[in-house]
Design a protein around this nucleic acid. Structure first.
Lengths: 345, 345
DNA sequence: CAGCGATGGTAAAACGGTTTCTCAAACATC
DNA sequence: GATGTTTGAGAAACCGTTTTACCATCGCTG
């Protein structure tokens, strides 16, 4: 903890033999001066190891280069990829991110939002664990821009979601393309908007008769669903699951029954939660919601908003991507961009 | 986005009929004035919804009420609980946390640390995914205090770790207490310090002859270990695993073999990574490293340091706690504080 | 050579608070 | 009633930048 006296712009100016004003302009590439002066100032700043005090700068510029990320997703399963994307988009702009987990506690939410505003964040990104629920805080009358990513916001807000329907369609078509005929969709509670969206797309692609089974978002439900399905005379030859945990349960249950995945049955998951998808035997083919990209876009949007650039309000939908592993079988070479997908693992 | 003009202390002063200086002192409970004046100022501030600009305040006070959290744990498995604890400790002090994931990228680490310093953080907490590895950045000569939590730091630093040996001992003794006789420890690579610490404690408690098997930190290794162990004439009746993923693999492999958990074999995991531990069938009894508490302590320490209070350098070790679920069997009632443990799930 | 527009630079005023210093009035002391 | 001593409050300096306004100097033109 060497309490090295921090260098101020005043020091740079003195050493370079100019006024503070000139130093500031030199370093920010603004104002007019000879090239000689500008480079001289820059060099001394570099030599002295000068780093401007972001607080002082924020005070005049009305820009703190700081944003807040609000989430109620305590496992970080959705938030962390989003956060990674945000950081990726903002780090070279020198923007830092306050992360606040607020669970579903409105009071805690208010405290954190107030703290963020006090600290003059340039914007707030709201995110969560569910696309059709709101955070327990009202962000609609804030003095800073807000972007909703993977969580519901007011109708006129800037919102980012992943394309559940398209993801489900791709998964279903992939199964059909493998020659599977009896498709079933085992998914979460139908109170979730994502569930209906995915189920709808599944039915459209697989035929209206194709069964959709609802249950909790758990491995246990995957087991139960298999038990139920294998009571029927002709069990399915392909199961598209609403998330990776259900898919894992399904795969495990099938193995216990002696049903071969992927030889007898193809299974596809949803989320590409690597820790589950990769540990399943065989590793899960699954739909990736591209949350990192979603985070990147959110970061860029909040930046644009902070800079006053015009941003069209409304819902932006980002495509999902099928990540092919080994739970479906079939001819992987048929897939044109297979290399890339395998790398995405 | 109602761009409501933010109220400044100037406005409060004017409305309350005092000078800015008096207003400031009134609100901060400093200086001398009649109680009447003080409360009048406070009331007007409240009525106007005044919130001080944290940047401006930081500039004079040399305190930003902001800290940085640096991590290379991209899954957030260890970082999120730590972060939750930190937040819990700091939120009522009005401190916000910059979260920066730096992977193992030294350049990225430097960028983020510099950004934090520019933003005048009051301190930095370093954390990671491994207790015996350092982050790829040197934090030893920083102008702000640093606390290392669940990651290695310089010898004279303030460091927080969980008590691997004690956790392993408790797990082992629990198995012995259930009457198990042939204990085996299936764990991670012995290049990990935690692995040796736990293995050492295991051997001490279970007898020097008790076997310790090393492998990767994966479910697959759990399966492999069981295959290996059940080749022997007398397989173990209790398996203590180095993490929950291995334990999950072990439990699954045993079920596939028709070995009953917990009737025939007791299994204990490590980490209490709920998403794995609770989904295992039966749910895993496992050692919780109390990372949230670790975060709380880290938060308090960094605050003390920031306020200049004396903090003894050195390694602080926090106890682990056994979380009892159903993978061990035995008389759960025997455990005195069982209720509490079950709630901890 | 007076007049004028660039050019290169500086002094000073923000930004929004806190803190130190100063001072008049009220009060106590002798 | 003259002389300290509190007490309450305000003026001004400060924190470290950016930005505005201003001012020399210079080269050019007519």
């Amino acid at each position: 903890m060497a309490k090295a006296e921090r260098i101020r712009i005043y020091d740079v100016a003195r050493v370079a033999g100019v006024s503070v004003a000139t130093a500031s302009k030199a370093l920010n590439d603004t104002g007019r001066m000879t090239d000689a002066t500008r480079t001289r100032v820059k060099q001394t700043a570099l030599a002295l190891g000068f780093r401007p005090n972001a607080m002082a700068r924020a005070l005049t510029q009305q820009r703190s280069f700081t944003i807040g990320l609000l989430t109620n997703d305590s496992y970080g399963r959705f938030t962390l990829p989003v956060m990674a994307g945000i950081n990726e988009a903002l780090v070279d702009q020198g923007v830092s991110v306050f992360l606040c987990g607020i669970e579903d506690d409105a009071a805690l939410g208010k405290i954190h939002v107030d703290a963020m505003l006090d600290k003059q964040v340039d914007g707030i990104i709201a995110t969560g664990k569910r696309i059709d629920r709101r955070l327990p805080v009202d962000l609609s009358e804030l003095p800073v821009p807000v972007v909703y990513a993977f969580t519901e916001g007011p109708v006129d807000a800037v919102t980012l979601v992943s394309d559940d329907a398209q993801g489900a369609r791709e998964a279903t078509e992939w199964l059909l393309g493998l020659g599977r005929q009896r498709l079933v969709h085992v998914t979460g509670p139908d109170s979730f908007a994502s569930v209906s969206a995915r189920a709808g797309a599944f039915r459209e692609a697989a035929g209206a008769a194709a069964a959709v089974l609802h249950g909790p978002w758990s491995e246990a439900w995957g087991h139960a669903a298999v038990a139920q399905l294998w009571q029927q005379e002709t069990p399915p030859d392909a199961i598209f699951c609403g998330n990776d945990q259900i898919a894992r349960g399904v795969v495990d249950a099938l193995r216990e029954r002696g049903v071969d995945v992927p030889a007898d049955v193809s299974v596809i998951g949803f989320d590409n939660w690597e820790i589950v998808a990769a540990a399943t035997r065989p590793p899960l083919t699954t739909v990736d919601m591209n949350l990192k990209e979603l985070g990147r876009v959110a970061g860029r949007l909040i930046l644009d908003l902070a800079e006053g650039k015009p941003v069209e309000p409304g819902i932006r939908t980002l495509p999902c991507k099928l990540v092919v592993r080994q739970s479906c079988g079939g001819d992987m070479l048929a897939r044109p961009n297979r290399q890339e997908e395998l790398q995405g693992i």
